[in-house]
Write a protein that binds this DNA or RNA. Structure first.
Length: 971
DNA sequence: GCAAGGACGTA
DNA sequence: GTACGTCCTTGCA
């Protein structure tokens, strides 16, 4: 009998550090170690022939839990960092690989792999067999037998060395200076810093071997410790005798593990192609598949990839496509059976992270350079760090940096306070709190870490921190963002760290209100006492790293790696820069407009009182409704859902047409006061003192469909439709010596619809550059495009928009002020003319009910938890939204991609254009005067090609660009 | 001081 | 009929 025992866990860890980790499966899952492992299994069966050919085989893994060693010495392996994130999903896959090769995969709760290996090795030897242990772990060297009955084999690939390296007595002696039978005595003395085996301080391998060679074993040495001449050594041994004994117990492998399988069960089985090839195909290991096909004389094409492991097909938005339907069925089956390795891993990580307790006492305050250096060293060796900036406000363009926190693993945390001042908030009380590093010194120290591309910085809402740090000349490379991870996976369901923490970790965290208070007495973070601040800040980073450990594995498990890594994550720094640039507005123009609007509004106000016969608050819909419908007794009044009179613009327009002049006056007054309140009066307050410009904040994670939103101020709803509104837009100006360029997608959503629903007539119209609304009208009403009445085109336009919004007869009737029946007829005609559109709509409705979500062409999922609501109006709403979401969302994905590529493209073209604003289908740039005509073609090219190569659209995309000194004229 | 509702600005 | 954010009033704490 020749028993081959593979140390599976040891292999994975060592291979991870020995091999370049480049290989990923098509879903983004790292698989380099699994590949190396499969190669090794293949090599072993190939190379171990003749007298070395094993008759029995098993792969042994560590079971991740406590072992008896934790009871002997709690610190054992305690300081070991968590397994690298890239490695973790490969653990279950390695076990699956073992099974695919027809080899027993063995692990046991409470035992390390080494103990199981020792047990089997001794059993086999006692039975007269020969044993080969595939491992390079020095802890297993104690098992090597001088008679060659137990040997070790190192298979970790190392450049310039043979692939298989035998370890016998001689190699053990070279390593420990003693024979295998004395290895544990040497280890007892010298310890092992990696596993935290203490040994005797000050005694290394050399000294240990010398002592053991002299005294035979540990106990004899301790019995004769008085004879040792070197004073220091003798005293150390005396003092730490017990530590040495504990160490010996830690390193001594158990040989009596109650293994479930006996030796007979480890007899080698022929590899079953039906087990092996589905696994290899799912892992996308082409080379090894080919090799083994030759070896086994089997055809891999006879087997399908194992759906439990295979990359799940990206959710496609198209429909009526057999291949896609099959892919969807396979995906549902794969996720329905809880077998997918990435799914299991994600669930496992969640359970494990959730179980780690929080301990505020473990957090540290970094008060000096040496402490900071210690943390930086820790971060560098860890390779990744969760970090968070604390500042004096919510606006990163005005707030001051107060401190920075770090966490390298769940339960760890440190706070670097930099700008805390004494609690007094009057003008003279702001003395610096003692015990903080000098800000400049500290920032100089952390700057290289933030810039280092090999260190991953994990933020929650990186855009905020990036924008703030940029003001302190700290550039950040290599980021992850738990907020964007959450958004990529779950949409805008969770908005804050507190919500995420509560949901995923079951931990509430310290509310910021507890530190700052609220209302008039609210403090800034700079005034929070250091101890409280540190606990809060370090906890934030601690939470962030836990959320990262929970959410990041879900990307691969749920097929969202591409969305996150190619769209969301790279967009965040782009947006941070746009926010930082701001846009220039002309105060004078706004101030002049404000005066003009105020005068005109006052006139309308007086007129309204006159017409109403009384004065009232024009801004109160309640009071207005009472005057119109109760006092004046007008009919046509409808109630809102709360029972109040509806007085919206639509209602008032109807009344005005019926000859109620007050209604018109109110509409006009509302328009002017809206423009004042929201724009001419409000915008100047947003001009930043430092930059003289207006800096909006984009939200990348708020919109269901994948659009951005803009707030404080919202620069995505600057008026454009009315003449007065456009006057406000003209106050957005280029800086001196610059000019604005506006580039907008033409009919992007209809083009996306034509692509997704594959509507030939629409595609042809776009291909030929026709007026799409006129074409629609012509098709529907049989009216030639030449000389078409504007009202006919207007109706078709409303229908086209209606389609995008998930049309209903009710809505269309409302929009066009026509009877519902007539609107229904229009829709019917439309569907008869474009039956593909109805198919598209039905498919989205079916999907949202079946899956709870629909998807964009780039795989973004849009969730609708209410899809099967028992409330009919709620259900209808979801149906319409599920029709709109893939269209709006795919268009949003396209412009996001354009924005990510824009800066490098402009730079490459040597153009100094600054991207300032995004308004859903429009990008606004500021470029040096005179360069606009070279900038515009580059901008257009990037925008028009933004879907490629991920998606090849079957309609042309058109972008129109204009340059002018203000936004109104550029648009 | 805060939340909800209504209204209205944008794509 | 889709997707947002802001302003104002109202009502309640």
């Amino acid at each position: 009998m020749h028993l081959l025992l593979v140390d599976g866990s040891g292999y994975i860890f060592r291979a991870f550090h020995a091999l370049p980790q480049l290989n990923r499966k098509s879903d983004g899952l790292p698989v380099g170690c699994v590949q190396g492992f499969c190669n090794m299994l293949y090599k072993l069966t190939e190379d171990l022939k003749g007298e070395d050919e094993p008759t029995h085989m098993a792969v042994i893994f560590d079971y991740s839990s406590k072992t008896f060693r934790d009871d002997i010495y709690p610190q054992y392996k305690a300081q070991r960092p968590p397994a690298p994130e890239e490695l973790v999903p490969q653990f279950p896959l390695t076990r699956a690989a073992t099974r695919a090769f027809g080899i027993p995969s063995i692990e046991m709760e409470g035992w390390e792999a080494d103990d199981i290996i020792a047990t089997y090795a001794c059993n086999a030897r006692k039975a007269g067999g020969k044993v080969t242990i595939v491992s390079s772990d020095k802890d297993l060297m104690q098992l090597v037998e001088p008679d060659g009955s137990i040997r070790m084999l190192d298979t970790i690939p190392r450049p310039g060395q043979p692939p298989l390296r035998w370890i016998g007595v001689e190699e053990v002696f070279n390593k420990f200076g003693v024979g295998p039978d004395k290895v544990i005595d040497v280890q007892a003395l010298c310890g092992d810093s990696v596993d935290n085996v203490p040994g005797v301080p000050g005694i290394g391998v050399k000294t240990a071997a010398e002592l053991i060679n002299q005294y035979g074993d540990l106990e004899n040495l301790l019995a004769h410790v008085d004879e040792i001449k070197q004073n220091a050594r003798r005293e150390k041994l005396r003092e730490h005798a017990e530590l040495a004994r504990i160490s010996k117990r830690l390193v001594t492998l158990a040989q009596d593990v109650p293994v479930a399988l006996d030796l007979g069960a480890l007899a080698r089985q022929p590899i079953a192609p039906s087990e092996l090839f589905p696994f290899l195909k799912a892992m996308e290991f082409a080379t090894i598949t080919k090799r083994l096909a030759g070896l086994l004389d089997a055809n891999p094409d006879d087997f399908a990839a194992d759906p439990d492991i295979a990359a799940k097909p990206v959710a496609a938005v198209g429909f009526d496509n057999t291949a896609r339907a099959e892919a969807r069925a396979a995906r549902q089956e794969a996720t329905g059976r809880a077998g997918n390795a990435t799914v299991l891993h994600a669930a496992d990580m969640h359970a494990r992270v959730k179980a780690i307790p929080f301990n505020p006492d473990a957090y540290e305050i970094i008060r000096d350079a040496s402490a900071l250096q210690r943390w930086l060293d820790l971060i560098v060796s860890n390779g990744h760090v969760a970090t968070d900036t604390e500042s004096t406000g919510l606006d990163n363009q005005t707030a001051d940096l107060v401190g920075i926190s770090f966490s390298v693993a769940p339960g760890t945390g440190a706070y670097l306070p930099l700008g805390h001042i004494e609690g007094n908030d009057d003008m003279f009380g702001g003395g610096r709190v003692e015990g903080q590093m000098d800000m400049r010194e500290a920032l100089d120290m952390v700057r290289p870490m933030f810039a280092d591309r090999s260190i991953l910085k994990i933020f929650h809402n990186a855009k905020y921190d990036l924008g703030l740090l940029a003001r302190y000349d700290i550039a950040v490379n290599s980021i992850d963002d738990t907020l964007l991870l959450s958004y990529s996976l779950d949409g805008p369901q969770f908005n804050t760290m507190a919500e995420l923490s509560d949901h995923w970790l079951g931990f509430a965290g310290i509310p910021i209100k507890d530190l700052l208070g609220s209302g008039k007495t609210q403090k800034t973070f700079a005034q929070v006492p250091l101890a409280d601040a540190a606990r809060y800040a370090a906890e934030d980073s601690d939470i962030t790293i836990r959320l990262w450990q929970v959410l990041k594995p879900r990307l691969a498990a749920e097929n969202m790696t591409a969305l996150y890594e190619t769209i969301e994550r790279p967009l965040a720094p782009v947006l941070a820069r746009m926010e930082g640039r701001g846009v220039s507005i002309d105060r004078q123009i706004l101030s002049r407009l404000s005066g003009e609007f105020a005068q005109r509004a006052a006139a309308f106000e007086a007129e309204a009182y006159e017409l109403a016969g009384q004065s009232f608050n024009l801004g109160s819909p309640k009071q207005l409704g009472e005057i119109l419908f109760d006092k004046m007794g007008l009919d046509g009044g409808t109630k809102t859902k709360t029972g109040a009179w509806a007085t919206g613009a639509g209602v008032l327009e109807e009344l005005a047409l019926k000859g109620v002049p007050l209604a018109r006056t109110i509409v006009d007054w509302r328009q002017l006061t809206k423009l004042m309140g929201t724009y001419t009066d409000a915008l100047p307050h947003y001009i930043n003192q430092r930059t003289g410009r207006v800096h909006t904040t984009y939200s990348q994670h708020s919109v269901l469909t994948g659009r951005l939103s803009s707030n404080d101020p919202n620069l995505q709803n600057i008026p454009v439709r009315t003449e007065d509104g456009r006057k406000i837009r003209s106050a957005f100006v280029a800086a001196p010596g610059k000019i604005l360029v506006s580039a907008d997608y033409s009919q992007i959503e209809l083009r996306v619809l034509a692509h997704i629903a594959d509507i030939q007539a629409l595609k042809d119209a776009f291909e030929e550059g026709l007026d799409i609304h006129a074409m629609t009208a012509s098709e529907m009403f049989g009216v030639p495009v030449q000389g078409m009445p504007s009202d006919v085109r207007r109706r078709a336009k409303a229908i086209n928009f209606g389609i995008i919004y998930g049309i209903s007869a009710f809505g269309l009737a409302n929009q066009l002020s026509i009877p519902r029946g007539e609107a229904g007829d229009y829709i019917k005609t439309y569907f008869e003319r474009f039956p593909g559109i109805r198919d598209y709509m039905e498919e989205q409705k079916r999907r949202v009910k079946a899956d709870g979500h629909v998807s964009t062409i780039f795989g973004r999922k849009i969730n609708f938890p209410n899809a099967n609501s028992h409330n009919p109006s709620e259900r209808s709403f979801v149906e319409r939204a599920s029709i709109n979401a893939p269209i709006q969302g795919s268009a949003a994905d396209i412009i996001r991609r354009a924005m990510i590529r824009m800066e490098p493209a402009l730079k490459k073209a040597g153009i100094e254009a600054d991207m300032l604003l995004q308004v859903h289908d429009e990008l606004i740039f500021e470029v040096p005067l005179g360069t606009e005509n070279t900038a515009m073609p580059v901008i257009k090219t990037v925008m028009e090609g933004a879907a490629e190569p991920a998606v090849r659209l079957n309609v042309p995309i058109q972008v129109d660009a204009h340059a002018a000194h203000n936004w109104d004229e550029a648009h």
